[in-house]
């Protein structure tokens, strides 16, 4: 009995192991097949579905719309736009290029920050280190510099295009003002960055620039009515900008903080408003059908 049971038991275990191995093998094959299927069509997987909330693998009009509207990076776009609005001749693409340059500048700027100390002792040496020892350091600095210059130009051209197409007109007046503020911020960003290498070029450009602040009416010590209001080199607006009466270590630190933190944050906020208002004001302004002089309505009385 004992042996039989034992024997039977032994056979049973072997049988079961074989059986379960067989089952496991079948299951593995099935799952492998499924995995292959998933790799071929990743849209079916849970991972994919968790990242992309809605399926849009087929190019139906609905899916094309969803592709834009359900994507956080693309959702500032409308789903569809005027067929003529995609023409380069109308927009010149300058607003979009300015924004792209801002992204490039943020990216290269953050990388530069890893190698830079805003102190009189270190700043200039850090630039030398970047130029000569850091891998691709020179390329990084060059890209940051030239992207900044290019952005000033593209912002000007964007403004020029908006004027030529009358795009600042009702209902976009306020967005034009936001744009003017962004123009000023672009120039200030570029200007504050000029001092950071702490070389002769930046030092004297910023000295020339901030010396004008002495002459600010009322709040500069050399400006009209400044001395009468008690302004001296040690308490006027230039002192506030430089953190001192000369361009020195405090000025370097202030320029650094304005350049890397305060101004980019402000610019990002105003950009958010700018883009949001483009959508809320009815998308980009044209190319609109021309209006005729004979169709001018009589003066609107408010």
């Amino acid at each position: 009995m004992e042996r039989e049971r034992g024997n039977r038991g032994g056979v049973g275990v072997l049988e079961r192991v074989r059986e379960e191995t067989q089952q496991l093998r079948v299951r593995l094959r099935e799952e492998l097949e499924e995995l292959k299927q998933d790799l071929r069509e990743p849209q079916r997987t849970q991972l994919w579905k968790s990242i992309f909330r809605v399926p849009h693998e087929r190019t139906t009009p609905r899916n094309r719309a969803i592709a834009v509207l359900a994507n956080v990076f693309l959702h500032l776009h409308p789903a569809r736009i005027n067929r003529d609005a995609v023409r380069y001749s109308y927009t010149w693409g300058m607003g979009g290029i300015s924004f792209y340059l801002f992204i490039v500048l943020t990216f290269t700027g953050v990388l530069l920050m890893f190698y830079y100390h805003p102190t009189k002792v270190q700043a200039f040496r850090d630039i030398l280190y970047l130029e000569h020892d850091v891998p691709f350091g020179r390329l990084l600095r060059n890209m940051h510099r030239w992207a900044a210059h290019l952005m000033v130009i593209t912002v000007w051209l964007h403004m020029f295009r908006v004027v030529l197409t009358g795009s600042y007109k009702r209902p976009r007046e306020f967005n034009w003002c936001v744009g003017v503020i962004l123009l000023v911020l672009t120039l200030l960003l570029s200007f504050t960055g000029y001092l950071l290498p702490d070389d002769q070029l930046g030092f004297w450009a910023v000295t020339v620039g901030t010396n004008m602040a002495r002459a600010t009416p009322l709040i500069g010590h050399e400006g009209p009515f400044g001395p009468q209001l008690g302004m001296t080199p040690y308490n006027d607006v230039r002192f506030a900008l430089l953190g001192g009466s000369i361009v020195d270590s405090n000025a370097l630190l202030r320029a650094y903080i304005w350049h890397c933190i305060a101004l980019p944050l402000l610019a990002a906020i105003f950009m958010g408003v700018h883009f949001w208002r483009v959508r809320k004001d009815g998308g980009i302004s044209g190319p609109a059908p021309v209006m005729l002089e004979s169709e001018m309505r009589p003066v609107r009385k408010v």
């Binding site: 020179r138 940051h144 570029s190 290498p197 070029l201 020339v208 620039g209 361009v247």
Partner: peptide, 24 residues
């Protein structure tokens, strides 16, 4: 084209002419 880098800042040596950044 390399970004310009001149000598270290020297308050005692004023370049002539000394110019603002080009946009200003």
């Amino acid at each position: 084209l390399d970004a310009p880098l001149e000598e270290p800042a020297n308050p005692n040596l004023t370049p002539n002419p000394s110019k603002a950044p080009w946009y200003f």
